[in-house]
């Protein structure tokens, strides 16, 4: 299963980015292999609709759980419609928040 964590940099020690639509990077954690994959968030520089664009991106990648700080109303609609479960995290390193919440990924 794929878990997405919004991150300020492209490694597992990076801090969580509390923004969703305009976060710097998406960290994808694979619960089966324990591997991380990082993607730059192209929507971060969009003039408008960053939330929906970011939502489209993670939904298209088949993410099932999203860990981030704040979702705007449009992004929330996309994430809900895609059946992605939301875990609110505002700070901490990516790998630490993953370790902390791991038990709940199902």
């Amino acid at each position: 299963m794929k878990v997405c964590i919004t991150a300020q940099d492209n490694n597992e020690n990076a801090q969580v980015d509390p923004r969703f639509g305009r976060c710097a990077f998406f960290a994808f954690y694979d619960t089966d292999s324990g591997d991380y994959q990082f993607f730059q968030n192209e929507a971060a520089f969009a003039d408008g609709g960053a939330g929906t664009k970011a939502g489209n991106f993670i939904a298209g990648k088949g993410v099932r759980v999203l860990m981030t700080g704040h979702l705007g109303p449009n992004a929330e609609t996309v994430v809900n419609a895609a059946g992605i479960r939301l875990i609110t995290v505002n700070s901490g390193a990516v790998k630490d928040v993953v370790d902390r919440e791991k038990a709940g990924f199902k």
Partner: peptide, 23 residues
């Protein structure tokens, strides 16, 4: 403008197309 979201369908059912009118 990020005004459309398309969520692909699955075995369980049809996909979804969302339009954000304000965008």
């Amino acid at each position: 403008f990020g005004a459309i979201s398309v969520l692909p369908g699955s075995a369980a059912g049809k996909g979804t197309l969302l339009v954000f009118d304000h965008l």
